[in-house]
């Protein structure tokens, strides 16, 4: 029964991926930009959710890893004259290394102080990128990265992003449901008990932090490939609100929550927020409503609605 249900939901996701793959046939060019933004933000938020929803760690350094991934693509092109696509495989170890080092440092503290330490470290990276004019071109950023022939055309670039994103999402999913993922959930639920059960909490947290940072860098690299640019604002601390917002919308205790969150967030941005000069007000108000009224996110609401309909209590699921 369980296997069958899992099989069924897998089919649903395969179907969705296929629909997404057909995007260029029914979406206008500008909508492909929107769609690819959804894909990239979904990957970024899902990677953060490995920390937030699964391990219970609040990090403010995730924008820094995203930005570093984007700069990996931009800088191999700018300085080495390599194909910018070389930046993608480079972004992965780079993101891993940076996340490992800063994670090892930040994990000396716990909870709120941990969060603040990640903030300090990420601002340090931001300042370096912003100030190192000769290497990163400072606040201008790097624009107009020349992509290889086969990525010319918005549809091709979109397909490329989709393919990499799908593979990365599968990898993240495998990690989330692995015994390792289950250990992270145990840590979130109760650190002492997890330690008592023989889990080396710090080591697991550091591993989760490193993995999350790695995938964030990959998402950043995809951003640079699709948009052909990288600029320092990607690393600024306020940017962290984007994936957190997305996770909150979609629900943090579900693996697929951030994906749904990304769809809703980007469409909100495009529709409601795009219509007014005061888009911050609207996003802020939505954020407040979610925090105060439906902290479980939209998926949680959907579940409650279904549950009420069936007159049975909502099932609380911990590890997707």
């Amino acid at each position: 029964m369980k296997a069958l249900a899992a099989h069924g939901s897998r089919l649903v996701w395969i179907g969705l991926a296929l629909v997404a793959a057909l995007g260029p046939f029914f979406l206008r060019e500008i909508e492909l930009f929107t769609a690819s933004r959804i894909l990239i933000l979904a990957l970024w938020a899902t990677s953060l959710n490995l920390l937030l929803g699964q391990t219970g760690l609040v990090s403010f350094a995730h924008a820094a890893y995203f930005g570093v991934g984007a700069y990996a693509v931009a800088l191999v092109w700018e300085h080495l004259g390599w194909s910018p696509l070389m930046g993608i495989p480079l972004s992965v170890p780079l993101g891993a290394l940076l996340a490992f080092v800063s994670g090892a440092f930040a994990l000396r503290a716990v909870r709120l102080y941990f969060a603040l330490l990640t903030l300090a470290l990420s601002q340090l990276v931001y300042v370096i990128v912003f100030q190192w004019y000769s290497f990163t071109r400072g606040d201008n950023g790097i624009h107009g990265i020349d992509m290889p022939e086969f990525l010319n055309g918005t549809a091709n670039a979109y397909w490329f992003v989709l393919a990499v994103m799908v593979v990365a999402m599968i990898a993240l999913r495998v990690i989330a449901v692995s015994p390792f993922g289950a250990a992270l959930v145990a840590i979130r639920e109760n650190r002492q008990r997890a330690a008592f059960l023989g889990i080396n909490v710090k080591r697991y947290e550091l591993a989760a932090f490193t993995i999350a940072g790695t995938f964030a860098a990959l998402a950043g690299a995809l951003f640079a490939v699709f948009n052909r640019e990288a600029y320092p604002n990607l690393l600024f601390w306020t940017e962290n609100s984007v994936p957190i917002f997305i996770i909150l919308i979609g629900g943090m205790f579900r693996f697929w929550g951030p994906l749904i969150g990304a769809v809703v967030y980007v469409l909100l941005e495009e529709t409601v927020a795009g219509q007014t000069e005061y888009s911050h007000f609207i996003l802020g108000a939505i954020l407040l409503v979610i925090v105060l009224v439906i902290p479980g996110g939209i998926e949680g609401v959907g579940e409650k609605v279904v549950a009420r309909f069936r007159k049975q209590p909502a099932e609380v699921e911990v590890a997707a």
Partner: peptide, 14 residues
């Protein structure tokens, strides 16, 4: 329940 949720998601996306 899970299937219901997924269906909901699929309907919204489509």
């Amino acid at each position: 329940l899970r299937k219901q949720t997924f269906l909901l998601v699929v309907v919204v996306l489509i």
